[in-house]
């Protein structure tokens, strides 16, 4: 396995603390940026929300108590990230929408998560493979975001990155172990990889929104993450004795609001109470 990030790196939040309020200054200077910035924040927050939701479905059904507990920890971290990203999205949008409003009162066409995370869990192997492919991207992304021109983004990234370093450590370790475990576990992991692979391309494919936030120094260009992501994933898969799929076709659209059929059902379940009892407090 490639060497993993050092989880004891000093808190970048403290380093960034001198730059408070940068987003407001920036939006005052470049008002055109607001819609793209908002959309980009939703992409981050919706992706962690939907993946956290999917992982939470495992609670009580894990293959071993230890794994049940570990998956819930990852889910809890991702829900925490969601609150930070969507809160900031609501602030940037300036329409008074809270993180909960965004999570519970938008329909599928307004969700901006990547398709990979809305796919059903499948068996535990597919869940872990999805987690690994996502974590490898997530960790790289957050590392870049620590240097964001917007303080709030850098702060969220710094906090999240510590947690995600552990997610990646765990998921890559399990991919190696299950890939190089029994014949059955190997076959299941290869199968999971083949099914999920086409959904990874979307993470490293930019559009006008990405270009705008990259130009403003808020976030990296998605394309720039591809090489390091691929290198890391390749090393882990090799150690796991798994073959990297040759299928280069990417399933895309989630980040622009064009989803799989699965998201509608997920939202119907997740949003049920807020939709059935509008305005109630819980």
């Amino acid at each position: 396995m490639p060497s993993l990030p050092d989880m004891a790196t000093p808190n970048v939040t403290e380093l960034a603390a001198g730059r408070r309020g940068a987003s407001r200054d920036m939006l005052a200077e470049v008002p055109d940026l607001k819609p793209a910035f908002f959309e980009w924040l939703c992409r981050m927050g919706d992706t962690t929300l939907i993946l956290g939701h999917r992982l939470s479905e495992w609670c009580g059904h894990g293959p071993a108590l230890e794994e049940d507990i570990a998956i819930a920890n990852t889910a809890l971290d991702l829900i925490g990230h969601t609150q930070m990203w969507l809160n900031l999205a609501g602030e940037v949008e300036g329409q008074g929408r809270s993180a909960d409003d965004l999570a519970y009162l938008r329909d599928a066409m307004h969700f901006r998560n990547a398709l990979l995370v809305e796919l059903p869990n499948g068996d535990i192997g597919r869940t872990l493979m999805r987690q690994f492919l996502f974590d490898a991207w997530h960790h790289e992304m957050l590392g870049r975001l620590e240097g964001s021109a917007v303080t709030e983004v850098a702060e969220i990234a710094a906090k999240a990155k510590k947690e995600v370093a552990y997610h990646l450590d765990r998921s890559s370790d399990l991919v190696v172990r299950l890939g190089d475990g029994t014949e059955e576990s190997h076959a299941r992991m290869q199968d999971a990889l083949d099914i999920l692979w086409p959904y990874t391309g979307e993470f490293c494919t930019g559009d006008a929104v990405d270009a705008a936030v990259a130009k403003a120094g808020i976030a990296p260009r998605p394309e720039d993450l591809r090489a390091p992501w691929l290198a890391f994933v390749g090393e882990v898969l090799e150690e796991a004795t798994l073959d990297m799929p040759q299928n280069g076709h990417a399933q895309k659209g989630g980040r622009q609001g064009r989803h799989t059929e699965h998201l509608g059902y997920l939202l119907a379940e997740m949003q049920f109470l807020q939709r059935a009892y509008p305005g109630a407090e819980w």
């Binding site: 507990i69 570990a70 920890n73 765990r170």
Partner: peptide
Amino acid sequence: AIRNARDV
């Protein structure tokens, strides 16, 4: 076991 201990 170390990872599980961290999580549990």
